[in-house]
């Protein structure tokens, strides 16, 4: 109560003091945080790169080296094995899931027009349900899948079909859609056969 009263009674002098205090705190805080940022940024970048590297190696088996090229809202990776032969092209792509964005690395063999493997890099799906999209059992369905559009089925997946996850139909469907989009991006990028 007395706090309200003092606001009304405060003259310009008091007003300046209030603004001065807040500005001072703001400056000190900005100063401290810029140090924190400089200190932690390289570590954060390093984790991101390590995760990316690991994902490229896992979706393009046999890769020992890769080249990175930034596309429109996606990043392409050309993988090479130890004899400098191309192992495939991977794309890092993100799309919306059930709760937030899902970030996926999709590895393909553009010559054979097949998916080689996929890996979920980041997601915010419900643990125990949607989060099961990261399980290898689900991801394995995409291995050696020809380019095209895919159907989500409950069991016994045939050609161009992916077995869904019970309780996580939406997350699984979102992954399928993102992978389809990734395939499209790769086809555009490689110009259909390079």
């Amino acid at each position: 109560m007395n706090e309200k009263k003092s606001v009304q009674n405060s003259g310009p002098d008091n007003m300046y003091r209030l603004i001065f205090t807040l500005v001072m705190i703001g400056i000190i805080s900005g100063f401290v945080l810029s140090f924190v940022f400089q200190w932690t940024a390289p570590h954060i970048e390093q984790h991101r790169l390590a995760a990316q590297r690991e994902a490229v190696f896992s979706v393009l088996p046999g890769t020992v080296e890769y080249e990175e090229e930034i596309g429109e809202r996606v990043v392409f990776f050309r993988g090479f094995d130890e004899h400098d032969n191309q192992t495939g092209v991977a794309v890092l792509i993100s799309g919306s899931g059930f709760q937030g964005d899902i970030e996926i690395m999709v590895g393909t063999d553009p010559l054979a027009e097949k998916i080689r493997g996929i890996k979920i890099l980041d997601h915010t799906e419900t643990p125990g349900l949607g989060a099961r999209i990261t399980e290898q059992q689900f991801l394995n369905h995409f291995e050696d899948m020809p380019f095209g559009t895919y159907q989500l089925v409950q069991q016994d997946p045939g050609e161009m079909e992916v077995e869904g996850i019970s309780g996580a139909t939406i997350s699984a469907r979102n992954v399928v859609q993102i992978v389809e989009r990734a395939v499209g991006k790769i086809q555009d990028y490689t110009g259909g056969g390079r």
Partner: peptide, 11 residues
């Protein structure tokens, strides 16, 4: 200045 995001938003 991403590190000022929380401070800026709350202000």
């Amino acid at each position: 200045l991403p590190f000022l995001r929380y401070v800026a938003f709350i202000i």
